[in-house]
Design a protein around this nucleic acid. Structure first.
Lengths: 257, 257
DNA sequence: GATCTGATTGCGTTGCGCGCAACGAGTAGT
DNA sequence: ACTACTCGTTGCGCGCAACGCAATCAGATC
């Protein structure tokens, strides 16, 4: 254990609360102010802190740079890439990655089917909330209050004979999704296609995206689709791990309501 | 200068690029891996790094906590929140809040566009001084001497055909900004985006932050962008009021040079 | 089970970082 | 204008914290 580093980290922690003077920091860390000064100088040289005015120090830009760069490297798309590509090659079907952003579910990545029949979708397109598997996964993962509000505001446009057309039915469906750990779109969006989707989880177990496999019914019947679920879940777990999800630390998926 | 701290900061920097192994870090920092191990352990005990798997380390949650707490403590953000949210909902475009700190302009808040096209920017990211509207607003508000010095030290990297590339042109632009009370970025940073920005003022009329609206040119032409200015100024004034700015007491914006 | 690769530990040495005390700079008080 | 006070800053010598080495352990790969 490095003493000086440890003290420096204490300083950073103190500075997170706002600008501090040398003496304040020295007292907080329980060391001589000379020591604090030296540590601050080192931190300053790497832009972790900066002088606010003559006698106040504050956190510097390096911290934000680090956080940003780290987020870049954690970009769900990049992290999930390997797992999704594998799922795509394994099944041969269309694989989508979607995330929930500001009230909408958006496709953020897509791996094309190797079959003739392809889906009409593209990266950046919004997914209908009430009749897609990815949306069910993502909405099911919202906090209860928000989820209910979202469900209440959906315009339940019927797309096929199977489309869910009421908030009650939708919420019941979401409960099932949460319990199972994956979602189905049983030809609720387009007659000739059905899908399964599963959540991708982040560091603290929170759902950050959803993966789905979409299959034309001419290629697989309902049971055939369900047979893909284990592969789907495995891929979703791999993607989650790549996003920093620690499976040991977080409870299994079915626990959350 | 503290050697061990300095090395630890180098490690953090390396880790920002993604998970690394002990050896990679040791080579990068140019020290023995034993040393790296000890530093990492200290960093780990304070949650600045965490183990990814058996042989990879990654940045930990403490960094993000620090960044967030630090941003929280800048109350401009909290005060301006309501006004900016309203501006965002009114226009539907990306709204940024930025402030000038220690020679740099930093984005301290962001409200996403509701359109598909989104900007690459993030809270905590630094804004280029010579080709962003927020920076123009903030630099224009500095005391003349300091402003000139800042202008002289800018590296006028051309980003687009419209980018300002000399201190003279920049200072002339700032004079215009001060006179108008708002700033433009006429695709000076990115070809497909242009922005307008206005100052947020504190109690004594001093500029404490800048608000901007960024719009893809495919959505609004130059005149369309200018049409947003009244809404922008209204939002900036609301934010100023929330920050303690008394409009009656302070002179109108155009007065300052 | 042999042979990697890479993480971890024990240990002796050294130079780094520590606190002290003196100094400097700026501010307030009379 | 002088003093007194408060902080930040510097020089210095001692002691231990941190360093690198080498050995060991753990786990994968063949």
């Amino acid at each position: 254990m490095s003493q000086s580093l440890d003290r420096a980290l204490i300083l950073l922690d103190a500075l997170a609360g706002g600008p501090r003077t040398l003496d304040q920091l020295a007292e907080h860390a329980g060391v001589h102010k000379t020591t604090v000064l030296r540590l601050l100088r080192t931190l300053e040289s790497r832009r972790f802190v900066q002088r606010d005015d003559a006698r106040h120090y504050r956190l510097g830009t390096a911290l934000f740079d680090l956080a940003n760069r780290s987020l870049d490297s954690r970009d769900v798309r990049r992290c999930a890439e390997a797992a999704l590509r594998e799922l795509n090659e394994l099944t041969g079907h269309t694989v989508h990655l979607a995330s929930y952003e500001g009230g909408e579910v958006v496709y953020i990545d897509k791996y094309e089917s190797r079959h003739q029949v392809r889906m009409y979708s593209r990266v950046g397109k919004r997914a209908a909330l009430h009749c897609t598997a990815v949306a069910k996964v993502l909405v099911a993962a919202l906090e209860p209050g928000r989820r209910d509000r979202v469900a209440a505001e959906i315009d339940y446009v019927p797309m096929t004979a199977n489309t869910i057309t009421s908030a009650e039915a939708y919420l019941a469906e979401l409960a099932g999704v949460a319990a199972r750990g994956y979602a189905l779109d049983d030809s609720e969006h387009e007659d000739f296609i059905h899908c399964v989707a599963a959540p991708v989880r982040g560091q603290r177990g929170e759902v950050i995206a959803a993966v789905s496999v979409s299959v034309p019914r001419v290629l697989l019947d309902h049971d055939g689709l369900l047979a893909l679920v284990p592969d789907l879940l495995r891929a979703a777990e791999r993607a989650s791990a790549a996003c920093g999800h620690n499976m040991a630390a977080a409870p299994p998926t079915a626990v959350e309501l």
